Simulated assay, not measured.
Amino acid sequence: MRSGFVAVVGKPNVGKSTLLNALTGKKISIVSEKPQTTRFKLRGILHWPEAQIILVDTPGFHQPKDALGEYLNSQVVGTIREVDLILFLVDASREITEEDNKLAQEITRSNLPCLLVLTKKDLVQEEKIKSARESISKIIQFQDWIAVSASTGQGLEELISKIIPRLPEGPGLYPEDMVTDSAFDVQAAEIIREKVLNNIYQEVPHAVAVDVLRIEENPEKKLLKIYAEIYVEKASQRKIVIGQNGGMIKKIGTQAREELEYLTGKKIFLSLQVKVKEKWRHKESFIRRIYRSS
Rank of each mutant, 00 (worst) to 15 (best):
L112D: 01
V186A: 12
I192L: 05
G25R: 08
E203D: 09
K234G: 03
S74E: 09
S17A: 12
P168M: 02
D185L: 12
Y262A: 13
Q154L: 06
K225P: 04
D122V: 05
K120I: 13
I230F: 00
Q63M: 14
I86G: 15
K225E: 14
E134Q: 11
R133Y: 04
Q75C: 14
I191N: 00
R214K: 11
E95K: 11
L72A: 09
S110H: 07
L42Q: 10
A132L: 02
V241A: 08
K16P: 06
I252F: 05
L167F: 13
I28W: 01
Q202H: 08
P219N: 09
H282R: 12
Q141L: 11
G170I: 14
K65W: 13
K11R: 12
S149M: 08
A188I: 09
T38Y: 06
N245C: 10
E33T: 07
Y201T: 15
M1F: 02
Q154P: 00
V186Q: 08
I192G: 05
S135Q: 13
D100Q: 02
P205L: 00
G4T: 07
V9N: 01
D177H: 15
I240D: 03
E169T: 11
L213R: 00
S137M: 08
K138Q: 12
I54C: 05
S285V: 01
P171T: 15
L270E: 13
A92D: 05
I136D: 07
D181C: 12
K41M: 14
I242K: 01
R43K: 12
L223K: 09
F184V: 14
L224M: 12
I268A: 14
I140A: 01
G60M: 06
E261R: 14
K11P: 06
L213K: 03
S137P: 10
K275Y: 07
I215A: 05
Q105T: 15
